[in-house]
Simulated scan of single mutants.
Amino acid sequence: MTKFKFCTGVIWYNPDKNAVKRIKILSEVFEKVFVYDNSENSNYNKVAQFDNVQYLFNGKNEGISIAFNKIARLAEKFDFLFALDQDTEIKGYQIIKLKEYIEKYFDPQIGIYCPNIYFKEKKSYKEEVSVVPFTITSCSMLSLKIFRQISGYDEKIFLDGVDWDYCIRLRIAGYFIKRINSIEVKQNLGFGFKNLFGIYEHSAARNYYIRYNRLYLINKFPDYFYGWKKIKHLYLANVKQVLSVIFFEKDKMMKLKMIKKANKDYECSTEK
């Protein structure tokens, strides 16, 4: 008999066939699967056959913070929420292994248990388990007790920076993130390869959110982003973003316009 109750929440945005196939896997290893669809058109027919899947749809893209917060409120009888996006290639046995680890080695000070996420190449570690300062949102096994205690995800952040914000607040509150290195999970990226600046190409809208949310986080956590860390994330990161667009990317003028707009919009928001 298990000690804890686990559920999962998946965020969709115009899901492809692979995203739909993964719902079957999730429905077999979780008591409850919440699918929050940020698409403009409903995809309910793709999950209607699963009895333990609850489909949530609002006809617009609300980002991931609002979506996961709503899922967490619906998951009141559960202890852990496994957060996923539609680009993560995770297998059923990997999820079971993660759940078994939590059952065996549960620590009330751990706010997130996560696998060893990789993008292009696997990175091996000598230690079976590591305490880490950060993990991405997808594949985060969130302690819902702690999630509610620190007020969930910041709904002012639409996409980029959601994970940084939550991990920082988690650690400020005295909790930790534990990575199980033997569970290796691939995260797909829909924007090609890194260029010479180490940046993946993004859409103009994504460039806007990257810049805006970076400014927001740096000013939200002045005790975390200070000294060299502030210089790196505030100034050097912005230079890299702009140079990446100028030298390597398509739609240069639109992307530069959106980065400039992000700067202006953030300045206006701080003046209110």
Results as ranks from 00 to 15, higher is better:
residue 2 T to I: 09
residue 5 K to Q: 11
residue 8 T to M: 05
residue 9 G to M: 02
residue 11 I to T: 04
residue 12 W to C: 01
residue 13 Y to V: 05
residue 14 N to Q: 13
residue 14 N to G: 03
residue 15 P to W: 01
residue 16 D to T: 07
residue 22 R to H: 10
residue 23 I to V: 15
residue 23 I to T: 09
residue 24 K to M: 09
residue 26 L to I: 00
residue 28 E to P: 00
residue 28 E to L: 08
residue 29 V to T: 11
residue 29 V to F: 09
residue 43 N to T: 00
residue 45 N to A: 12
residue 50 F to D: 07
residue 50 F to C: 04
residue 51 D to G: 10
residue 54 Q to E: 15
residue 54 Q to T: 11
residue 55 Y to K: 02
residue 56 L to T: 00
residue 56 L to S: 01
residue 61 N to F: 04
residue 63 G to C: 10
residue 69 N to Y: 05
residue 75 A to K: 02
residue 75 A to Q: 02
residue 78 F to L: 02
residue 80 F to K: 01
residue 81 L to W: 03
residue 81 L to C: 11
residue 82 F to I: 03
residue 82 F to N: 06
residue 86 Q to T: 08
residue 86 Q to M: 15
residue 87 D to N: 11
residue 88 T to A: 08
residue 89 E to I: 00
residue 90 I to D: 08
residue 91 K to C: 10
residue 91 K to H: 12
residue 93 Y to R: 06
residue 97 K to T: 14
residue 98 L to M: 13
residue 101 Y to L: 01
residue 101 Y to T: 01
residue 103 E to Y: 01
residue 108 P to K: 05
residue 115 P to S: 06
residue 117 I to K: 07
residue 118 Y to A: 11
residue 118 Y to F: 14
residue 118 Y to E: 13
residue 126 K to V: 00
residue 128 E to I: 00
residue 129 V to H: 00
residue 129 V to R: 00
residue 131 V to N: 09
residue 131 V to I: 14
residue 135 T to H: 07
residue 135 T to C: 15
residue 138 S to W: 01
residue 147 F to D: 05
residue 148 R to T: 07
residue 150 I to G: 00
residue 150 I to R: 00
residue 150 I to K: 01
residue 151 S to Y: 08
residue 152 G to V: 04
residue 152 G to T: 07
residue 153 Y to R: 09
residue 157 I to V: 12
residue 158 F to C: 03
residue 158 F to T: 05
residue 160 D to W: 09
residue 161 G to P: 01
residue 163 D to Y: 06
residue 164 W to C: 01
residue 167 C to Y: 12
residue 167 C to E: 06
residue 169 R to D: 06
residue 173 A to E: 15
residue 173 A to M: 11
residue 173 A to S: 14
residue 177 I to T: 15
residue 184 E to A: 07
residue 189 L to A: 10
residue 190 G to C: 02
residue 192 G to T: 13
residue 193 F to R: 13
residue 194 K to I: 07
residue 195 N to P: 03
residue 202 H to P: 00
residue 204 A to T: 04
residue 206 R to T: 10
residue 206 R to N: 10
residue 212 Y to P: 02
residue 215 L to Q: 15
residue 216 Y to F: 12
residue 216 Y to A: 05
residue 217 L to T: 12
residue 218 I to S: 03
residue 224 Y to N: 08
residue 225 F to A: 08
residue 228 W to C: 07
residue 230 K to E: 08
residue 233 H to E: 15
residue 235 Y to V: 15
residue 238 N to I: 03
residue 239 V to C: 07
residue 240 K to L: 15
residue 244 S to I: 13
residue 245 V to D: 06
residue 247 F to I: 07
residue 247 F to Q: 03
residue 250 K to N: 14
residue 250 K to M: 06
residue 251 D to T: 09
residue 252 K to E: 14
residue 253 M to E: 14
residue 255 K to N: 07
residue 256 L to K: 02
residue 257 K to E: 11
residue 257 K to L: 13
residue 257 K to S: 14
residue 259 I to E: 13
residue 260 K to D: 11
residue 260 K to C: 12
residue 264 K to A: 12
residue 268 C to P: 00
